[in-house]
Design a protein around this nucleic acid. Sequence first.
DNA 1: GGTGAAAGCACCGAGTT
DNA 2: AACTCGGTGCTTTCACC
Lengths: 159, 159
Amino acid sequence: MGKFKLDEIDHQILDMLIDNTRIPFTDIAKKLVISAGTVHVRVKKMEEAGIIKGSSLTLDYKKLGYSFIAYVGVFLNNTSQTKFVLERISEIPFVTVAHITTGKFNIFCKVRAKNTSHAKDIIFLLDDIEGIYRTETMISLEESINDKKRLMHSIFNEL
Amino acid sequence: MGKFKLDEIDHQILDMLIDNTRIPFTDIAKKLVISAGTVHVRVKKMEEAGIIKGSSLTLDYKKLGYSFIAYVGVFLNNTSQTKFVLERISEIPFVTVAHITTGKFNIFCKVRAKNTSHAKDIIFLLDDIEGIYRTETMISLEESINDKKRLMHSIFNEL
DNA sequence: GGTGAAAGCACCGAGTT
DNA sequence: AACTCGGTGCTTTCACC
């Protein structure tokens, strides 16, 4: 759970892989002027340490017909039910992430849907969960994503 | 921007790649009882169509020392400044995503930080942006993520 | 649109410095 | 810890179906 020591070479390797996980290790090796074997060993170590949890595709959900994003704040009848309700919410398809939060809402989640009508169906599923008193929906009109590469650079420059 | 026709084989290929982008195409081919060349061509087509935007590593930010997540709701003095402020917010490091939203807040963003003290620094940067009247922070106490695989399955089963 | 084979490379472990 | 090297096996293309 603690920090893990990464040196400049590790940063550079992550930096290249974060943009394209299928880039050949030989290419990485050439750019960093080290051997491909070294790249291999370092990646393996970062995997073993759990820094690299896995790899995934970045899909264009808009092109798949899912261009609707909303955040939903949830108010509970009773905060002792928080954990239970979080689990119920997580089971709903198209809820991509849910958080227990401080502040205004008890639980806070993100919904990805086809359109308003589809989102309505999903939010009705939410409202039906026992223990939920009320929900408040915020529809995303425009999204501005900061890619992982920038976050990584911020992290590396701070360490 | 519209939908794109994916058949069952494409679904299966995405399904395997979404969990591990470095899985050999020969393995996918074996499981689906098609040739590796076919897998290659289909992946290429999905890339060209923009369905697959890229691939990325899944990192453990907690292990890197960044275990703090908060959502910040932003109120503006004047909604005509919304676009401008969104851009300023997106420039702040550790802001991973920002949305223009309907509802309570004008803008809504997610912050990833080391700890409360670090988050405070970031939120102060937000508060300093011209045009922002007030912010409201919700700290994540617990996160429940629904992986991409589940979202994919939901999407495929609906199509 | 799919196949299968072949050429070119990449991966990754073993042995060395 | 990193390098080189070599066997194994993956990727990618192309003529053919």
